[in-house]
């Protein structure tokens, strides 16, 4: 469903260039949920944006459902793929109410029963009818994130790219969203890429997981390998150890604050 071969993304800033993504390749089968974890700034969000055609990239192959990911997408292509951004604030229009935000894609695509669908979408992500006519700034951080997820799901897209969808949510709402995604996967063939820092979340939802560091792919492992710690790269091992919680013992390369 998603094919990525030798993907590269370079940003230019002043005289310097930032090689955000360097020669990444992977495939995601129809109906599969593929996870990406890795260092902050390693290019995870940029990979998703490149697949969605939101940043310029070079590659030998970059396809979604057999079609090249282009920068300008037609209406049908936008319906095929939805992206939930890491920053819910940045992606929600500040002067639109929750109702307006959810209604817009339905109107654009000429869908019937709009009111019912809006109400159902609000309930699906654990929000209440009273949130329907609020503006983003009148919601808590997690409530805003749920609005962004509801909007991405409202057209039931076959491909969903999720960038840290639950990091702003408490674990009870996170459980509801993860269960919702798992159920959608069963009710129709949903192909997902999930970026998360929470190894337990990716192990729960994903079949295979890519580990990224400094713009490169470190390795691709199965969820079972992640659980059992059967990994080859040191970096992956460090991640697993660090996910067990904070330890008060000082690290070796500690920087002393002046």
């Amino acid at each position: 469903m998603i094919a990525v071969d030798d993907l590269n993304v370079t940003f230019h800033n002043g005289g310097r260039s930032i090689h955000a993504v360097q020669g990444i390749s992977f495939n995601v089968a129809a109906g599969e949920t593929f996870g990406i974890v890795g260092e902050s700034g390693s290019g995870k969000s940029t990979v998703l944006k490149a697949i969605a055609g939101l940043v310029p990239s070079t590659s030998s192959v970059l396809e979604v459902d057999g079609r090249p990911a282009a920068r300008r997408r037609s209406r049908a292509e936008r319906r095929l793929l939805q992206l939930v951004f890491q920053d819910p604030y940045a992606s929600l229009h500040p002067r639109q109410t929750v109702d307006g935000i959810l209604r817009e894609p339905l109107v654009i695509h000429g869908v019937a029963d709009i009111d019912d669908k809006v109400m159902a979408a609000i309930a699906d992500v654990g929000l209440l009818p009273m949130h329907r006519f609020r503006y983003p700034h009148q919601l808590s951080g997690g409530q805003r994130q749920r609005v962004a997820i509801a909007r991405a799901l409202i057209l039931r897209p076959p491909v969903l790219l999720l960038d840290e969808p639950t990091s702003a949510l408490d674990v009870s709402i996170q459980a509801e969203i993860l269960n919702l995604l798992a159920n959608l996967r069963q009710s129709y063939s949903l192909t997902c890429i999930l970026v998360s820092h929470d190894l337990a979340v990716v192990a729960h939802l994903c079949n295979r997981i890519a580990i990224m560091q400094l713009g490169k792919l470190v390795e691709i492992i199965s969820a079972a390998d992640l659980r059992s710690g059967t990994v080859t790269a040191d970096y992956t091992r460090e991640l697993i150890a660090a996910s067990r919680g904070f330890t008060r013992a000082p690290s070796q390369n500690q920087v002393v604050l002046s």
Partner: peptide, 11 residues
């Protein structure tokens, strides 16, 4: 630290 990977988070 919600947007940090776990190793950076711990630092």
């Amino acid at each position: 630290t919600s947007a940090l990977d776990v190793t950076v988070q711990n630092e």
